[in-house]
Design a protein around this nucleic acid. Sequence first.
DNA 1: GTAATTGCAAAGGATTTGCAACAGT
DNA 2: ACTGTTGCAAATCCTTTGCAATTAC
Lengths: 161, 161
Amino acid sequence: MSPYIQLFRRYLREQGLPVTPQREAVAQVIFSSSGHLSVEDIESALRGTGARTGKATIYRTVEILVRSGLVEEHDFGEGFKRYEHLFGQTPVHEHLICANCHHVVEFQSPEMVRGLEQMARTHGFVPIRHRLEIYGLCGTCQAQGVLPPDEGLTCPVELLA
Amino acid sequence: MSPYIQLFRRYLREQGLPVTPQREAVAQVIFSSSGHLSVEDIESALRGTGARTGKATIYRTVEILVRSGLVEEHDFGEGFKRYEHLFGQTPVHEHLICANCHHVVEFQSPEMVRGLEQMARTHGFVPIRHRLEIYGLCGTCQAQGVLPPDEGLTCPVELLA
DNA sequence: GTAATTGCAAAGGATTTGCAACAGT
DNA sequence: ACTGTTGCAAATCCTTTGCAATTAC
């Protein structure tokens, strides 16, 4: 059992919210995984442990976890969200996603983060958060001969504008 | 009427697809707007012109427009997609989005793009596309006293890990 | 003419919400 | 005790799909 559950309990108390077994179970699943879990992933992991937690409760709990700052929500364009805990890794990190097999690699780039925060300020914005995702073909898919998608019009727009 | 419709017609012919008034109408709406349109935006714009185009046709047409490379699809995390034509602007550009009023500012950063493509290759990926969005508070919202969202736990994770 | 598109309505998938029963504090 | 949570099912929202009528080529 992850020691980080303590942090979640503390957050709940700070907010005056009840600490329930369902909330702890959902947090437990996310804290114990090193990946990016969908609500469905969380649900089946919970079923595996014998706990029966309603899907609605999972949705309500991940919302709290995200607000607490312990978990990050991602949308990799698959039509649903994924959740990742922020322990044992750089709090700020970016994602490299295989467009074919959806394998995810994380990396950090402080210079890039500095650059984009500067860019925000240049335009009068106060930066809050960002989303930096690179989609490409991972080594494995390249080796299997998967090709990048079609490029569209044969003649680039620039030449005709 | 936008002259860029020609490009779309050409793409359709190249692909052996029929050029229909509905497809031209949808393209027309997107090509005539400088913003980021949702399917609902497109639908109401079409209603305004008297044309009655089914929502399904709009979805089917934007899909083709995206494939053609004339239009880009965006997901700003609002729960639905937005579409933007790529004329009269740098084909590759990033978005700065107000977390409060959803105002969007576009900017380009060739250095950053170079940097992230390099980053992909460093990890064995062949870069295909990326998504770089900065969320923050725009000048107007700052002036109205809107504050950034709560930060979660009072004590940062790093100090307890 | 033939094959593809259109429009409508139904289906689909993820997420949310209403509400009665129940559990934390 | 009081307030907030849980779980279920119904509802919602965006998007996709089946199919008969229609249109482009």
